[in-house]
Simulated scan of single mutants.
Amino acid sequence: MKALSSYLTPVRACGAWLLMTLTGGGAACAQAPQEATQDRMVAKVNGAPILVSDLKQVTDAQTQGIRYQFADDPTKLANEMAAVKLNALDTLIDCQLLADEFYKIGGVMKPEFLEQDLTQIIQMGFRGDREAFMADLAQNGLALEKFRELRERILIMNVMRARIAGTVEVTEESLQEHYEKNLRRWSGPGKVKLHTVTISKKTADARSVADSLHTKLADGGDFEEIARKSSADSHATRGGEWNWLDPTDLTGTVSEVVLATKQGEISEVIEQLDAFIIVRVDDRQEGDPKPFESVKNEVTKSLMDEVSKGRIAERMIHLRAAADIQRMGAD
């Protein structure tokens, strides 16, 4: 069964099942339910309020899904949770700006379209079980009408993003240029040599120990000596040294950190389910780029996404500049 939070996360493209009609008349932007009118405002966009309850319900729904998705990766979990909270208000502001634009051009989100959206969610996410859907709503502290309102905002946002992005046409020349410009993206992960220090969470004050060792290493401490004395992994007797390896063979966040860490640098402390890990990337062998024809579909999608995002970003800059946006603070 699909997590309810996935239906409260704005995405760039709208589904084919979402219908939008353009008529000659405008409409007022969807407002918060009556029971939320006493909420403190965290922002006002062209006179329309964004309330604490709006912010809380969006962040709660998204963070619940993130907690489930990254339960075994505390570092990734912490980063994703921070990103949601940091971006939530901006997302709601953008939702309102795009809703204003939607209604200016005569957009109408008919009730039957929202009902079709709800039916689709129940069918695809809850195998047609409306009772299971309603139970999930209750578990998330959402009334059905509030869920509809949030979905309406998100659907309008996605419709407008798709409209702004428009049709993207690419040429063989532009694809080849995009491929050459981003060769590393089409290359294999290559190989890396690294050293690690691993502190088991069974160690007393494990986090403090890991932070202290990281400080020593960052200040020029002997990595191999520290690994031999303090590391709990199977490479400790070799001073934390690993043989050449494919970084994608490492687990989750460790792999991502290794790929992002420059040669000769020491990573931040990486929190895993049962340990804290510090990595030093000693050397790299870059992977060979895949032939253009073998990744042409990926290159095409990448270039089209880049153009679409650029158009949307440019339009949002214009809309924000032209709007009356007042932020009262989300804390």
Rank of each mutant, 00 (worst) to 15 (best):
K309W: 12
F113E: 11
R228T: 08
S234H: 03
G141E: 05
T215W: 10
V254D: 02
V45W: 02
D60H: 07
L18W: 09
A132P: 06
A232C: 10
D94K: 11
Q57E: 12
Y7A: 07
E177M: 13
R163V: 11
T9Y: 12
A48R: 04
T300Q: 10
Q139I: 05
S53Q: 14
G240Y: 08
L183F: 06
D282A: 13
L259W: 03
Q123C: 06
Q120G: 11
I278A: 05
T9V: 15
T196C: 01
P289T: 10
V84M: 00
T91V: 11
N79Y: 09
E225V: 09
V209H: 12
K44R: 15
A61F: 00
L155G: 03
L144S: 08
K104S: 13
K85M: 00
Q96A: 14
G125P: 06
E180A: 15
A99S: 13
D136N: 12
E35V: 11
E293Q: 13
D72P: 07
L150F: 13
D274T: 13
T215R: 14
R311C: 04
P10Q: 04
E112H: 03
S308P: 09
A30Q: 13
V168I: 15
Q272D: 09
D129N: 14
K229C: 04
G239E: 03
P291R: 05
K202Y: 04
M157V: 04
K309R: 14
Q120P: 00
K193T: 12
H214I: 05
P49T: 00
I105H: 10
Y103T: 07
I270D: 05
A82V: 06
V45M: 03
R207C: 10
P111T: 06
P49W: 00
L77R: 15
A218N: 13
I325S: 10
R148N: 15
Q38F: 11
G166H: 02
Q123F: 01
P247W: 02
G106C: 07
D274W: 09
E172K: 10
L18I: 11
L51G: 00
Q64S: 10
R161C: 12
D331P: 11
E145C: 03
G166V: 00
K290M: 07
D282S: 15
S255A: 15
S231Q: 06
P74Y: 00
A143D: 07
A330H: 05
W186S: 00
H178T: 04
Q176Y: 09
I50R: 09
Q57P: 02
L22C: 02
M20S: 10
V257H: 08
I312S: 05
V299R: 02
Q38I: 07
K290R: 12
Q123R: 13
D274Q: 12
S6P: 01
E306L: 01
L18Y: 08
S174C: 05
P289A: 06
L194M: 15
R311T: 07
M41E: 14
W186L: 00
D324Q: 14
D282R: 09
M157N: 14
G190Q: 03
D136S: 15
N243H: 12
V258L: 04
E241Q: 03
D282T: 13
C29E: 08
M124Y: 09
A13G: 10
K262M: 03
P291W: 04
A143V: 00
M81R: 10
G26Q: 14
V254A: 03
V168G: 05
T21M: 09
V58E: 09
L22D: 04
S53H: 10
S294H: 10
G65E: 06
V192K: 04
E268S: 11
D73R: 02
V295D: 01
A99Q: 12
E145G: 08
T261K: 02
